[in-house]
């Protein structure tokens, strides 16, 4: 092999090695921005006239309710969802001999420029209700997540609930 060719080959191999060293094998992971959390307690009322219990059927002592819908408002406090409108669509069953039942469904809370929507699951015992919910933000609350629990009662055809919730989000 001519000497010139050997020198060229060596140079070429050196360049390859340089490139291999210069290109990192994996990118270092970006540090996660810390998620912030806001925990609060709110109350909401779902009133008579804003409830439609939809399709219902009693079979073998069990009351089945499908797509019961209701609207109401979250009271004006100082939480991120104060004053928002709340809408729910629920389906469930209630044992008429024990007045115990369960339900699940969807919910949405709407403010001026955004809100939250998600799912809900809960129980009914005589004239009290309880449950838990999860959801995610829309509009101004994009990337926000909410989860929480609630409990309430039915008095004079008015459903009053107390919500304990946590909103988590990444600070921009």
């Amino acid at each position: 092999m001519p000497k010139k060719a050997v020198v060229m080959m060596t140079l070429f191999l050196l360049i390859l090695v340089e490139i291999a060293i210069a290109v990192p094998k994996t990118k270092p992971p970006k540090p996660d921005k810390p998620r912030k959390e806001i925990t609060f307690t709110e109350s909401a009322s779902l009133g008579l006239g804003n409830i439609n219990l939809g399709q219902q059927m009693i079979d073998a002592g069990i009351l089945y309710v499908q797509d019961a819908i209701s609207t109401g408002t979250i009271s004006s406090g100082d939480s991120p969802i104060s004053g928002f409108e709340i809408l729910t669509s629920l389906s469930g069953a209630l044992d008429l001999s024990t007045y115990l039942g369960s339900y699940d469904g969807k919910w949405i809370i709407i403010g001026q420029s955004g809100g939250f929507e998600g799912s809900i699951v809960g129980e009914v015992a005589v004239a009290t209700i309880s449950g838990k919910f999860v959801g995610q933000g829309t509009g101004d609350f994009e990337d926000h997540k909410i989860k929480g629990t609630f409990e309430g009662s039915v008095n004079n055809f008015q459903i009053e609930i107390t919500i304990q919730a946590t909103i988590s989000y990444t600070e921009k």
């Binding site: 409830i51 939809g54 819908i69 929507e117």
Partner: peptide, 23 residues
């Protein structure tokens, strides 16, 4: 409106219309 024979599906946009129609 929600859950009827020719207005299919249940979306939240329809909930308020259904309640208003009920009233």
């Amino acid at each position: 409106l929600k859950g009827t024979d020719f207005w299919e599906g249940t979306t939240f946009e329809r909930i308020q219309s259904t309640l208003f129609f009920n009233n």
